[in-house]
Structures are given as C-alpha cells and as structure tokens.
Design a protein around this nucleic acid. Structure first.
Lengths: 225, 225, 225, 225
DNA sequence: TGTTAATCGAGACGGTACGTCATGTCTTCTA
DNA sequence: TAGAAGACATGACGTACCGTCTCGATTAACA
C-alpha cells in the first residue's frame, strides 16, 4: 500500500527463506544487524488470511483469527500490516501475479479479448474473487485501503488495457475522439460490478457479446465490418 | 431483507406519522392493540444513520452512534433493524424514491439516456453515493444485506432499464441476438464501478461517449445511422 | 475509592440478591429504570480477586484472570472497577468489616491492647494479609489507589486508635505534650512493616513488649508504675 | 537476589571503571577472556532507572524505557539484571552507600538518635525514597526481590541498629528482658510506614518524640531520668 | 374505566476484536 | 566475549461495538 504507516513486507527483500540466491539479486543490505525477518511468518499470515476470507468472508478474517491460524503472534502482524484487509490485498496480489499481457503477435482486438477474459477469470475464480470483494469492501471504510487498491490493483491493470486501446486508436481500428477511459470502463466494469453485487458471473457468451458491442460501438464509422 | 430475523421496518405500513390517509391505503392492520410505532423514531434513526455515514464513513454509523444521535434507545433500534447497514439502505431508498421512468413520449434512446443520467446523478450525489457505497461494502460481509441490496435496489432498477432495451429490440432499433443483460451491464456498471473504487465520477461527456458506444455497438448492422 | 472514576459498587444498595428486605432498609430507589444490577457479579468478582491474590500473589490477580475465574465479562468488571487492585481492596474491606472498637468498659490501656491485637491478627492472617500487601504495592504505582487505601483503610483505623490515645491523655494516663500521631505510629507501624517486608510476624510476646514499651514510654513521668 | 536465574550485577566486581585498584581488591577473576564488561553501561542503566522511577513512578521504569534512556540495548540489560526492580534496587544501594554508623565517642542514645535521623533522611529524601517505595512494591510480586531487599537493604541496617541496642542493654541503660527486635521495630518502622503509605513524613519534632517515647519506655524502671 | 398489549427508554451483561505495551527469548552482526 | 539491533511470542491492558436481557414508563385500543 502506498499510504501504509509502516514499511510493507512487499518491500522486504532479504528474507532468509533458504533461497538467498534469488533474493540476493535485489538490493539486499549485507550488514543487516538484528535477527533477520522470518519468511515463514509472511507466508503463513498471507495464506491464513486468504483461507479465512474464502471460507468465512471478510468477517472471519480478523487479525486475531489470522494470527491463530498462521501460528503467528498478533504483535508481529501489527508490526508489518496496518489491517487485516491489507493482508488480504497482499494475498490477492500474490496469487494473481503481474498484470496481464497478451501473447505476442496478437491483434488489438485479440489483445483486448485476452485481457478481458483473463480479468473475468480472476474475478470469477473462487480463490481470488472473494479476496477482491473483501478488499473493495474494506476500502469503503479505510482511505488507506482505497489508495492501496487503486495503486496496487486497479491503476496498473487499467493502464495495461488503456495502452491497448490507444494502440488501436493509433492503428485506426478505433475511431478517434472517444474517451479511452470510457472504453476501458465499458469493458472492465461489468465483471467487477457482477462480483461486487454478487450477481451471477459473466459467461463466455456474455463476454463475447460485451466485446463485440463495445468494439463495434467504437470502431471508425467508415470502417468495414 | 429476505433472510432477516426480524420483521423489517420496510414492511411496516401503519406508522402514525400524522398522514394516515397516505398509509391507510396500504395494508394497515386495523386491530393493532398496543402502542403504535412512533414515526419520529424511524425518521430520526434513518436520518442519523445517513448523516453519520456521510460525515464519517461506514465506521461511524454504528448502532450506538445512531442511537445517540437520533436520541433513540438502542433496544428500539435492534427491535426494528437487523444491522446498521440495513438502516443505511433504508435511508438510501428513502432519499432516492422510486425507480426512474423516462418522460412520456420519449424514444428508446432518449429513455436510456435519461435513465443513465439519473442513475449517474444518484451515484455521484454526495448525499446518496456514500450510502450506496457503504451498503455494498456491508453486503460483502452479510448475505442478508446482499439479498436486500439486490431485491430492493439493484433488481428493480435493472428491470426498468432492461424493459427499455427489450422495447428497443422489439422496435428493431437494436439488433436481436445480443444479450439484454449484457447491454444493461455495459451501460450501468461503469458508474457503479467508479463509485465503488472511488474513482472520479463520469462527467456528461463521458456519459455521452458511453451511451454512443453502446448504442452504436448494438444497433442492427443494417440500420441507418 | 475516593478518586475513582466511576461510581463504586460499594455505593450501590439495590442489588437484587433475593433478599430485598435487607437492602430495602437502605435508600433503594424504587423506580430504577434499567436492568437491575446483578449481585452475583460483584460477589464473584471480589471473591475471585481475593483467591487469586492469595494463591498467586498480585501478579496472578489480573483483570483477565479474575473475569475468567468469576465467570464474569471483562467489560463488566471495567465498568465497575478502575483496576484489579481496587477489586482486591474491596475484597479486603469486605472480609475485615468495620474498624475495631474495644469491648465496652475497658480501660484505655486495654482498649489499645485490644485494638493492636486485632490489627495484628488481620495483618497476620493468611486471608487478609496478602490482600493488604498487594493493595499497598499497587498504591505505589497508582495515586488513585493511594487515596483509596488512605481513605478507606488507613485513616479510619488510625482515627479509632488516635481517639483512644487522646482519651488516655484526657484521663491523665498519658503525659500531655507527646504527639498523638507519633504514639499511634509507634504502635501501629511495626505490624505493617513486618507484613510489607515479609518479615516474620509479631507474636503475642512481642506485641506485649511493644505495648509495654510504648505505654511506659509515654506515661506521665510522675505517674506511679 | 538469591533466587535469580542469572548472575546479578551486584555480585560482579570486575568492572573496568577506571579505578581498577579499588575493585581489584575484591575477587576478580584474573583470566577473563573476551571483551570486558563496560562500566558505562552499568552506570547509565542504573542512573536511567533511578531517574525514571523518580519522575514517573514504578510504571515508568520499564526495561524498554530504561534501555532507551540509557542508550543501552535491551539485550544487554536482560543479560545482567533479572528485572527493572533489581536495577532500581541497585541504584538505591549506590546512592545510599554503606549502613550508617554513628560518630565515634557517642553514647548509646546518641548513636540511636543518629541512626534514626539518618534513616529518616534517606526515606524522606526525594531521591532515594521513591526508589525504596518502588522496590518494596516490586517485592510484593516477586520473591526474588523480597529476598534481595531483605539481604541487601533491610537486614544489614537492622543489624547495625540492633547492635547499638544490645550495647545499651549491656551498659545497663536499657532494661534487660525486652525483645531487642521489638525495640528496633518500634524505632524503625514508623518512617517506613509513612513512606509506604505515602503519609506525610516524620519531622524533627516527631522524631524526637518517637525516640523519647521508646527510650523512656524501655529504660530500666529504676534508672534515674 | 380499567385492562391489555404493544412500544419505548434505561441500563446491565456477556462476548469478540481491537490496537498497544511490556516482557523475555532468540538470531545475527559488530566491536 | 560484550554489546547493538531487531524479530518474534506471549500476555495483559483498556476500549469499542455488538447483541441480548430485564426492568419501568408510556400509549393506545378494547372490554
């Protein structure tokens, strides 16, 4: 999180997880004085939070419950994370990985399609979907979480999609003049909306319809079908 | 809420609010023995919840705080509402009124446009927007709230919009085959998405772009511009 | 306690302990609005605190432990007592009862002797002694407890003894001019001192010696032996 | 402390405090390998503990606070002292010095008087009094501290006084038969009692009264005034 | 005109989670 | 070997809010 009060675990690189080679490539201070941070703690906490959220919803993922399930001290958790929602967000980021990028050599429409399908898969997935729903709910009550969600989740993903759209505009496949952000919204918001309101998820056919509608709707009026 | 444990105030009709004529048209039980329910209480509670949510976010609208601000006993609140979020939802419904219907004699596109603008106005409004955001967040943790939001907020409004879209299909203005629900999603979800993620709201131009894109995208391919 | 932040349980009179007749003689407000206070709670808490202090010392009598042993909610305890030491003090006062008064018709010296023996018995007793030691220790860290100990324990007992001494002065049994408070100190402080430093308690012979020494030391110089 | 788990600093003699001559007379292990213990650390820790106790009471003198104020690592403190109270006791002993001995050539009564005045001065002093009060309070919760207080504070001082009293008995100034310990108690306990209960301290006049009373009370009955 | 049945208010109580503080142990690096 | 730096577990703290409960006070319709 950007607005977090404490140094975030994500910034930590020198974790003695037995694979120092991997982390050593990053900026590891060789002369770290005190006891090194335990990798077990971070992993266990994040995993516990994810499991609790999935099984019992946001209410279940309290700091207390996470601490108990992860067999980690509550104090330690409070040292590294500002709230349980921050842990859940971290677990979400962990399990999702980097923003989607389309397979090389794909057309703009194919790239859009790939992106949208991948996003829908994440939001629909029973592993990641509930985490995101919880995180967004927590953001409603906590400005720091709002910032974190935007900075670490939403904006990077929107940016990737917006780049594709802009490319399509440059290629002349989409008529200029339409607000790129609006196109991104039209494509991206339905899956979120369905998740956050607990509506039935978009299936493949619906996704196709959505893509076709938006793509067709913003093509150059003089373009051939 | 469907799954609520207690009779919901929304079901109540006989409130001695001084205007018995209006409520009397509804199904008032004539032979209610004891002391009638106070309209002052309901109004004060709902108003207090809305004010607290607006000023301090969901965290501020606790039952205790609502009781204190409304000068109503906590016991009374628990008697009529299952949770503070339920109160907020009620306040939201109060301040929004009935689902939007377009001015008579308007075309399908005009009706869609009117509906979308009205919805965006509600979600953007500083009075109602925060209430909805709070309610949706609460729904993530409470299945009863999820049901309530769907039944009392989302489905009625979707239905109104879907009816217009279906009419457009019937009129041949929109090509058949496209999933009506998808079109509704494409139109409706962006404002929600922007609200729930605390993004900047859609302005008029963006709304026009959105409408144009979707309308253009789902018109019959052979239709004239 | 005088400096207590909340109304003290000792002030409460209308406790529905099943014997309303007894308490009804005191100033019971008939129209107490809310749920009446449970007598079980007070008794259980005070007893638990005393037991824990006796068996495990001051460290054992935490609010948590008291709550668990008394089967009373921590919240309820915090509502009525400012600290665990305050509970222990209350238990001490309960088990000791009112300040000592000598049997009627006794001489001044007999009254002093009676008082001192009774005090030593209390401080030596395994039931009350540890409670007092704990309370005094807590007072070292908490000004409110200091005040409470003085107001509710020490001053009343000193006053009773000082009254006897002053009477002896009036009767001419003790020479005038000596500071009454000093005589009280000389008599009273040795048992306290032995308790607080965990020295072996004063036995009967030592008590006699002490009484004789002080009595003899402050008699009128011209008095006959 | 006898029952302490770690070697206590009080036992330590080889501190390189720049005055090796003084400490070298004591049992210094000559062949101590590795880095010698820092005198700066001991001094800073003890001083910090004393200052914190004086300014903020026993609550303020936590190990953490001492470490921070002394600019010494917590680990180091835990290595040498079993508890913060042990540090405070050490500071008390440091600042008080050896047990009092009367000026040479003084009579028994003068020696007693000198001793009592010196004791009262220590207990009344704002530098040492709070330390002792804190230490006694800690002893109530910690048997090791109880032992330490007795062995290092109370017993040596009582012994010195008892020796004077016994001498007075031998000189025939005090009647035989009275328990020496009781006389010591009668003299010594009032100042402690006043300190531990936070009563106003004994002034010079009160001290004179006390001395006179006890001295007069335990003189031989046939002795001349 | 009571009687009856409900609402409403006041407050006690049990319970859960919070976020913090202090303790004491352990691990690593540096002097 | 001493000391510094820091991670970690443990346990108690005092608070906030929740939801339930037990009363008394109030208010209407009904008998």
């Amino acid at each position: 999180m950007a607005a977090r009060r404490k140094s975030n675990i994500l910034d930590i690189v020198s974790i003695n997880d037995g694979t120092p080679g991997a982390t050593a490539t990053q900026t590891v201070q060789p002369g770290r004085r005190g006891r090194p941070r335990s990798a077990r703690v971070r992993a266990a906490v994040v995993r516990a939070a994810a499991q609790l959220t999935r099984s019992g919803g946001p209410t279940a993922a309290t700091v207390d419950a996470i601490a108990k399930r992860a067999a980690v001290s509550r104090t330690t958790i409070y040292k590294w994370w500002p709230s349980s929602a921050a842990i859940v967000l971290e677990g979400l980021l962990d399990s999702v990985g980097d923003p989607i990028n389309a397979p090389p050599g794909s057309s703009c429409k194919e790239a859009l399609e790939h992106h949208l399908r991948a996003l829908n898969a994440i939001l629909t997935d029973t592993t990641t979907g509930p985490l995101l729903r919880d995180v967004v709910a927590a953001a409603a009550a906590d400005p720091a979480m709002t910032r974190a969600v935007l900075d670490q989740w939403l904006h990077p993903r929107r940016a990737a999609l917006a780049a594709i759209v802009r490319q399509a505009v440059a290629h002349g496949e989409i008529r200029d003049g339409t607000d790129v952000e609006v196109i991104v919204d039209a494509l991206v918001s339905p899956p979120y909306y369905r998740l956050l309101f607990a509506l039935s998820p978009l299936d493949d056919a619906a996704l196709n319809d959505l893509l076709d509608t938006v793509w067709h709707g913003c093509r150059r009026s003089d373009a051939l079908p």
